[in-house]
Amino acid sequence: MKVMIAVLKKDVAPRFDLTLEAVFADIKRGKVQGEPRMILISRPSGEELSGLAVKEGVDRVVCGGIDQVHHDFLTWKDIEVVDGVIGPWEEALAALAASDLRPNAILAGASAG
């Protein structure tokens, strides 16, 4: 399973449309394969990020918040969206690998400051 996580510094980005960085990872048999790739985009753009997810052939997108238009687009492209996630992106990736990440999840590291 290929995943894309919209990130802001060490956290899952609160807004998909304002995101400048995304992490791509491959999960097989409950484990993240190799090192996740970080991709920077030139300007915050929900369209660009959605296009990137489609181009990279991801199966699942994780973010803090996403507007309905982009959510519908990704869903239409058969990409599952896990939104409302708050916390460090590495923790979100680990939860994904463990099939334990739900929409609106508040991860343990979220309040660690």
């Binding site: 609160p14 807004r15 918040g65 409302g84 708050i86 609106n104 309040s111």
Partner: peptide
């Protein structure tokens, strides 16, 4: 925000508010 006080307390406000003030 769809978050209760008990959920949101102590969280980064930017993550809870999801505003354009970033």
């Amino acid at each position: 925000t769809g978050r209760s006080n008990s959920e949101a307390a102590g969280l980064d406000a930017a993550q809870v508010l999801r505003s354009s003030l970033q």
